[in-house]
Design a binder for these strands. Structure first.
Lengths: 223, 223
DNA sequence: ATTTGGATGAGTGTATCCACTTATCCAATG
DNA sequence: CATTGGATAAGTGGATACACTCATCCAAAT
């Protein structure tokens, strides 16, 4: 069963399990508070419990699931306070990333940013992947900071709140101020002042938080 | 071997392995680039290699070790750029923590801070645990921010650079400007201006970075 | 002497097995 | 009828077993 050298699967079963569960959490197939049973997941993706368990550990370290000894693994729901906390952390980390990115942005980058902004806006009308586009937009900017650990941390924080963004976006309307806020960020990047761009990005993220947490409060999204 | 209900050991073997390896990395018993062999560690702390492997996963997620498929687990040495990056991240995250902490600090807290500063200074003369004291000082301040995820992230970053701080402190002299910088931070906290305290802490951490990375460059500490 | 190819052994990844813990449910009891 | 206690099932943590990969080393060939 294990010896198919021709298989082009991912290098390890653990990695496969990790990505599978991660995707499930991000798309809210696995909802906050839901218990993840190793055996079920293992059989679904055709492996034993062990690599799944190891994937759990990775997810737990990233704060995406909670493992209590002898009580299994549950998807980590965030309280309203925790959602806010994640936004605070993103606020300073993405602020830092933007500050570092500013001197490295070239005209190609700005062209791509305009494109991403458009795509985000268009997806908002028809498709439901505004969240993914929005994420792309932020990540593209941050990628210019050229700081791998910083990027990974930002991405990890984003995954954490992505399910809540999706719920929000699904129930409420698309954030109408988003377009202009993001345009303002692009303008600020073009202006080339790192401190100003950092401040603007920080503020942008922080001001998004109350809207989302307020909505989460209404719909009892917290854990 | 497993059924001793009276044993007050840590709840899981994985947790025990994790703490064991973590301590080893922090104290540089396990040095950067060194390969960690599950079987060896497992027998040393009296368990099988599986919980050790799981501990590896956790450490890898935190960036403390590197796991390459079929090539084992090595302690993650940081390049000079990466050390700098970690300081940058600490700079903004601890800045945030301080900003949030300021309104929550009371006179008891300041008394404790004075004590911690003294202890840090005293340990600098005789013992070699200035690094641990320094860490306590920073963590105590940050703890008042009341942000669990933020604290964990800061702690995780600190562990990453702790071995380098130890090498630095061992080879070079104790940072002489440290005392006054930390006193300035305490003063700033007493003044009660969150923004000012944030800026000062940010700057304190950022200015420490070049000293350490410069030293690391000399002694070829990078991986 | 240097290079190459294969044997050998160490180490890794996963599956399976076992002991133990926790949860569930039902019956007996107050 | 509510409560409690125990049987039973479900699930978790850890150990072991096994197949495979990678590194090392030595011998043969150039």
């Amino acid at each position: 069963m294990t010896g198919f050298s021709s298989m082009a699967t991912t290098s390890t079963a653990e990695g496969e399990a990790y990505r599978f569960i991660l995707a499930g959490i991000r798309t809210a197939r696995f909802k906050a508070g839901e218990r993840l049973i190793p055996e079920e997941i293992a059989t679904e993706i055709g492996m034993s419990r062990m690599p799944v368990r190891e994937a759990f550990r990775r997810l737990a370290t990233e704060g995406l699931v909670l493992i209590r000894p002898n009580r299994g693994c549950v998807v980590a729901g965030l309280t309203v306070e925790e959602i806010f906390e994640v936004f605070e952390m993103r606020s300073v980390l993405e602020g830092l990333a933007v500050r570092l990115a500013v001197p490295r942005l070239d005209s190609d980058a700005f062209a791509e940013l305009d494109r991403l902004l458009d795509r985000m806006e268009r997806s908002g009308d028809g498709g439901q992947d505004w969240v993914a586009r929005h994420r792309e937009f932020h990540e593209y900017i941050c990628s210019f900071a050229n700081r791998p650990k910083l990027l990974r941390q930002i991405a990890s924080l984003h995954v954490t709140i992505e399910p809540y963004l999706r719920i929000w976006f699904h129930h409420a309307a698309k954030p109408l101020t988003a377009r202009e806020e993001h345009q303002a960020i692009i303008d600020s990047l073009r202006a080339g002042d790192p401190a100003a761009a950092e401040a603007l990005m920080s503020e942008h993220i922080l001001t998004t938080a109350p809207t989302l947490t307020g909505f989460a409060l209404e719909t009892r999204g917290g854990g």
